[in-house]
Design a protein around this nucleic acid. Structure first.
Lengths: 118, 118
DNA sequence: TAACATGACCTTATGGTGCGAGGTATGCGG
DNA sequence: CCGCATACCTCGCACCATAAGGTCATGTTA
């Protein structure tokens, strides 16, 4: 199971990516993530709902209340154009991070710096 | 340049990895990181020193003061056995995270779930 | 009918973390 | 003497993940 600190900063990206596949609502999104994560991660409501609100406030998501087939109303979120752009930017950031970790952490081989002759 | 939120939670791992190559001191470590990051990242002293202290307090690093060739004394840090274990654990966490992001964010193909026939 | 389970939403409080800004000390060159 | 580079440090802010604790609505079950 991934620790909080490992996951930090990537939850927004995960939510945006989930919504890329079409509109959905909080409760469903949580199930989706936990299913797709397949044991690697288990997000609770106290984590996801605030992030959704944040993303809506930033204009990356748009929300509409709709009556579902069961019980209470659902708040459906969908990716806004701004959200799509942000998702792309986040993915780029992610690639940057993997490159950095690869350079500094994973790959023990010395980086070629100016002072290193071939 | 990587944003804070993208980097969150990985700085400890980066520091541990730097120290894996042998003992060093704060100021030098900062240069090292920023050189190796090659523009992807620029860490300041206000970021690195507290992390070093945290890692020392947790027993992942051991420190000794030594006189350097120039001016002031330097506080040399080296990886403790506990630190080596932690680094290995962090790297495992990292692989978990990459797998998760790959599954949920990068790879748009549907995950094979129980209900999906081949 | 009361109790419980489940789907569905929410907020508050807490602890952790990154980081800019600012401060101290030492030696060297102009 | 002043400034610069090396080298250390801390304070305060802002942000974020999360557990815990609520609120509704609709069943189902004792």
């Amino acid at each position: 199971m991934l620790k909080k600190q490992t996951l930090d900063g990537n939850i927004e990206t995960i939510l945006l990516a989930i919504l890329r596949d079409g509109p959905s609502y909080g409760y469903q999104i949580i199930q989706d993530i936990n299913t797709r994560a397949n044991g690697l991660l288990r997000l609770g409501e106290g984590t996801v709902y605030p992030v959704l609100h944040r993303l809506e406030e930033k204009g990356l998501l748009a929300a509409t209340w709709r009556q579902g087939d069961t019980g209470r109303k659902r708040k459906y979120y969908r990716l806004s154009p701004k959200g799509k752009t942000a998702l792309a930017a986040n993915i780029e950031q992610w690639h940057g991070l993997t490159e950095l970790i690869l350079r500094v952490v994973i790959n023990p081989a010395r980086q070629a710096v100016a002072s290193s002759p071939l």
